[in-house]
C-alpha cells in the first residue's frame, strides 16, 4: 500500500519530468539533419550494442561551442539576466508599498485587499499582458491621455521596447512580490516600532532599522519568485517587446519553431537550466532558513 503510494507519483514524475530532460540533453549533443526527426544520430535499437556504440561516438558538444561562437546567444542570456534584474527591482519598488499598505490597513479590510491582490493571478496571464498592448501602443490610451493633458506633443513609443517589457513583467508578477512581503510584514509586531520610536527613532528611521530588516525574508523570497520565471519568460517579450528585445525564452522558441533547429534549441535549454540552478538553490536555501526560523 505504502509502496504503491510512493511509486505512482514517483514514476509519473520520473517518466514525464526526468526522462524528457535526459532526452533534451541527448538531443543537444546531436547534429542538425534534414530528416524527421530533424537531428542525427538517432538511436537504432535494431543494431544492438554496436548501434549504441556508434550512437555515442557521434554525440559531441558542437552545439554548445556554437552557442559561445554566435553572439546572439550569449547576448540573449545577458539581456535576459539584465531584464530580469531590472524588472525584479522595479517590482520590489512597486510591490513593497502595496504590501506595506495592506499589512497596516485595518484588520477587517486586510482579507479583502489580500484577495484583490490575488484575484488577477487567477485570470489569464495572456489576457493581462494583452491588456497592455492597447494601452501602450502609439495610438493607445496612455498616449491619448498624455496628449490630451498636454504633457507631450508627440506620442511616446513604448510598445515594442524594453520599457513595455518591464511594465508587463512588473504587472504580471506583482502578486508574487506582494504576497511574501505581506506575509513577513503581517507577522511584524507593531510594538517593535513603538519600542523603536520610544528609544528615539524617527518614523522613517524606525522603518529603515526595524521594518525593512524584519521583512528581509519576504523581500528575498518575493525577488526570487519574480526573478526565476522572468529569465525564461516568453509571452511578455514576444507581445510587448520589439524585435530588438532579446530574451532567451524567445530565442529558444524561435530556434525550435522557426528554424527547426532542435539540437541548438535543446542546447539553449540546457544552458538556461544550468544558469537557473544557482538562483533556484539560493531560493530554496532561503526558504529552508525561513522554515527553521519559524519553528
Amino acid at each position: 500500500m505504502r509502496r504503491l503510494l510512493i511509486a505512482v507519483p514517483f514514476l509519473w514524475l520520473l517518466a514525464l519530468f526526468i526522462v524528457p530532460f535526459a532526452i533534451v540533453f541527448k538531443i543537444s549533443l546531436s547534429d542538425l539533419a534534414v530528416a524527421i526527426p530533424p537531428y542525427t544520430p538517432t538511436l537504432d535499437f535494431a543494431e544492438g550494442w554496436a548501434g549504441l556504440k556508434a550512437f555515442y561516438a557521434e554525440l559531441d558538444f558542437e552545439n554548445y561551442i556554437w552557442l559561445t561562437e554566435d553572439d546572439l546567444y550569449w547576448k540573449a542570456y545577458l539581456s535576459s539576466f539584465k531584464i530580469a534584474v531590472i524588472s525584479t527591482l522595479l517590482t520590489l519598488l512597486v510591490g513593497y508599498p502595496i504590501a506595506y499598505g495592506i499589512a497596516r490597513a485595518p484588520q477587517e479590510w486586510r482579507a479583502m485587499l489580500f484577495m484583490l491582490v490575488i484575484l488577477p493571478f487567477w485570470t489569464s496571464f495572456l489576457i493581462r499582458v494583452y491588456a497592455w498592448m492597447g494601452i501602450l501602443s502609439q495610438e493607445g490610451y496612455l498616449n491619448q491621455v498624455l496628449l490630451w493633458i498636454g504633457v507631450i506633443n508627440e506620442p511616446l513609443i513604448i510598445l515594442n521596447t524594453n520599457i513595455a517589457v518591464y511594465i508587463g513583467i512588473v504587472y504580471t508578477y506583482l502578486p508574487f512580490m506582494i504576497l511574501p512581503i505581506y506575509a513577513a510584514l503581517e507577522k511584524l509586531d507593531i510594538s517593535l516600532l513603538e519600542a523603536a520610536e520610544d528609544l528615539g527613532c524617527s518614523r522613517f528611521s524606525a522603518f529603515w532599522l526595524v521594518t525593512i530588516p524584519l521583512s528581509k525574508q519576504g523581500i528575498i523570497a518575493g525577488s526570487f519568485l519574480v526573478f526565476i520565471p522572468t529569465i525564461g519568460e516568453f509571452v511578455i517579450p514576444s507581445l510587448l517587446g520589439g524585435s530588438r528585445t532579446l530574451m532567451i525564452g524567445k530565442v529558444l522558441w524561435e530556434e525550435f519553431f522557426s528554424n527547426r533547429d532542435w539540437p541548438v534549441a535543446s542546447a539553449v535549454a540546457v544552458v538556461l537550466l544550468l544558469i537557473l540552478i544557482i538562483p533556484i538553490v539560493l531560493f530554496q536555501r532561503n526558504e529552508q532558513k525561513q522554515r527553521e526560523a519559524d519553528k
Binding site: P20, V24, F234, I280
Partner: peptide, 22 residues
C-alpha cells in the same frame, strides 16, 4: 521532482515533453 517543475521555465518544460512524445 515536485519542486522543480514549478520553477522551470515553461519553454523548457514544453520543449522536453514534446521531445519525449516525439
Amino acid at each position: 521532482m515536485i519542486y522543480a517543475p514549478m520553477v522551470m521555465p515553461e519553454v523548457i518544460t514544453g520543449l522536453s515533453l514534446l521531445l519525449l512524445f516525439i
